[in-house]
């Protein structure tokens, strides 16, 4: 088990390295020049060269890449004699735009994504599996049709539509929830919760659809298994048959997808929700950095998001080993 974990983490690090490399060189294929953007309207060739030098863009690609990798493990110093910025290990670089280390920005934005992602994930998992199970048990009847219909609705609406609709109803019209933004849980727990109700609801509506359908079909598949008939033949009550014998088996495939979703959500993939509700999260940071050709931030957000997906994968495999005794992690 321990050996397995070490091996998996080593593999994960390797994947991260590959992602870093690809992102780094894809960036250089982009046509825009960050130095020109930073130079502004009153740009002279000498000033441009100066900026290029301070951003390190006057060096070759491979040198820059090497410097970046070195910074990851040893930290780096940026700027010239006048302005000096220290970026401690693991250094993801310093933003071209704001001159702050990328990691600092990421960490300050992360609580918003963690709150948004985890909260929504717990809600849509519980609701989705619950609805899916009810739909499977009442297959073909009204409850099933309602759940399937709801799922279809959730799949077809878009986040910006449902988000704006919720904003209009609860903020503008009835004015029962605050307008926008994210409040830290340590500052104001009630405000944190109130501010997140609408973003959570939006994400739940969108994800619930998939989880309901997934658990319904997974449940129906399990219902057809011989061991479910055995469970009934033993004289177990219907609820035990469904909730103990059925759910235990049906949840396994859902865990895989759930792990991925949680990983990418807290890594900043809820970018549309963030921008609709004015939450400054990693998703928004990533979008802005692409617009500004801010290479260190692009790299940082990509790596940050990827590390959560990769980590979620490892966690999913570990959980799998716990849930299914036939899977041996070795």
């Amino acid at each position: 088990m321990f050996r397995y974990l070490v091996r998996r983490l080593l593999a994960a690090a390797l994947i991260m390295l590959v992602i870093t490399t690809i992102t780094f060189f894809v960036f250089f294929a982009l046509p825009s020049d960050p130095a020109l953007l930073a130079c502004g309207k009153t740009c002279s060739p000498s000033r441009l060269a100066e900026i290029k030098h301070s951003l390190g863009l006057d060096q070759g690609y491979l040198t820059q890449y090497w410097e970046f990798l070195k910074g990851l493990f040893a930290g780096r110093d940026f700027g010239d004699q006048s302005v000096r910025i220290h970026c401690g290990a693991p250094c993801l670089g310093v933003s071209f735009q704001t001159d702050t280390p990328v990691l600092t920005t990421l960490l300050s934005d992360f609580p918003a994504d963690l709150s948004l992602g985890l909260g929504a994930a717990v809600a849509f998992l519980v609701l989705g599996v619950g609805l899916g199970t009810v739909a499977a048990v009442r297959r073909g009847r009204a409850a099933d049709k309602a759940a399937v219909g709801l799922a279809l609705f959730g799949v077809s609406v878009q986040i910006y539509f449902i988000g704006l609709l919720l904003l209009y109803l609860f903020v503008d019209k009835f004015q029962i929830l605050p307008a926008s933004g994210y409040t830290s849980i340590t500052e104001d727990p009630a405000g944190w919760f109130k501010g997140l109700i609408l973003p959570w609801t939006t994400l739940v509506i969108v994800y619930l659809a998939m989880y309901t359908r997934l658990s319904r079909s997974s449940m129906l598949e399990v219902f057809a298994e011989d061991y479910m008939r055995t469970a009934r033949a033993k004289g177990l009550p219907a609820a035990t048959v469904v909730l103990k014998h059925g759910l235990r088996a049906a949840i396994t495939p859902i865990i895989t997808i759930f792990g991925m979703d949680v990983g990418s959500l807290i890594g900043g993939s809820a970018v549309i929700t963030e921008s609709v509700f004015g939450i400054n999260g990693i998703g928004k940071l990533a979008v802005d950095s692409v617009q500004n050709s801010d290479l260190p931030v692009i790299l940082g957000t990509t790596l940050f998001a990827a590390s959560f997906v990769v980590l979620a994968n490892v966690v999913v495999d570990l959980v799998y080993g716990l849930v299914d005794p036939r899977v041996r992690l070795a």
Partner: peptide, 15 residues
């Protein structure tokens, strides 16, 4: 009570 044909599929794999 009943004995089923294929004991591998008739017993629950997770218990």
């Amino acid at each position: 009570s009943m004995i089923f044909q294929d004991p591998l599929s008739a017993l629950h794999p997770f218990f």
